[in-house]
Amino acid sequence: MSAKSRSRAPIVPYAVWMVLFVIAPIALVLYYSFLDLDRHFTLANYRNFFSSAYLTMTLTSFWYAAIITFFTLLISYPTAYLLTRTKHKNLWLILIIIPSWINLLLKTYAFIGILGLHGPINALLETLGFDPTQMLFTDFSFILVVVYIFIPFMILPIFGSLDKLDRSLVYAARDLGASGWDTFRRVIFPLTISGVKSGIQVTFIPALSLFMITRLIAGNKVITLGTAIEEQFLVADNWGMGSTIAVFLILVMVLIMMATGTSRKGGRA
């Protein structure tokens, strides 16, 4: 498009909007992270953050996010692969995506019933001869529910990159005598790594910042960075400390974005 056809006017509302809702909020979070309860300047929040309790919490939060991302990828990759090989693949893709459009809270709420002592999973266990157990309020149920929620978000970018994959490369590899596993490891996976990266990006960052599921499903036994921010802001009324954790989360986000390359697909949960 040539420059003469353009006017600068359209960008004004957008630029104002970005300053107001991207730059200003981030600057404010940074500013607040240096304030104590009386709104005086302090470095205490950062000192506090690097104390043992918060460091442990941060590490566990990363650990859970890593486990969640791993299982989500493990389940989603084959699904995406099989989807590309179905007849009406776009229709099937939409059907996989629809559950991700159902409100997150509703899905979480469903699992309160499903995992409960009198829920269907325990009923199944009982008919198989096992003793029913309370599955709510455990690490296991937390990971299960979060993986369930993230699966569609992970499938979408992987499906996209698999779909673009040139099949002739796969056939060539097979013709040259590569085993199925070798073909996957040396040809398919490396060629779809960009989709995997976007998938990890849309899973890992939200997994660090989940807060509502930690309460409803894990009974507060899992504390993520997100839970800590929410508690500091809305329960403890300590915005300074909450902002400090948020600053840290923003830094992690930037690092992950740089590591996985900025992607186009957004996913939030």
């Binding site: 981030i26 404010l28 979070v29 990006q201 660090l208 910042s209 921010i229 929410e230 989360l249």
Partner: peptide, 24 residues
């Protein structure tokens, strides 16, 4: 720069968006 700013809001965790908007 504009595109990066655009991406920031998409990748930001909601908890950070919520908290920063609350301050704003």
């Amino acid at each position: 720069t504009l595109l990066s700013l655009n991406n920031v809001l998409i990748v930001s965790p909601d908890v950070v968006i919520g908290a920063s908007f609350l301050i704003l």
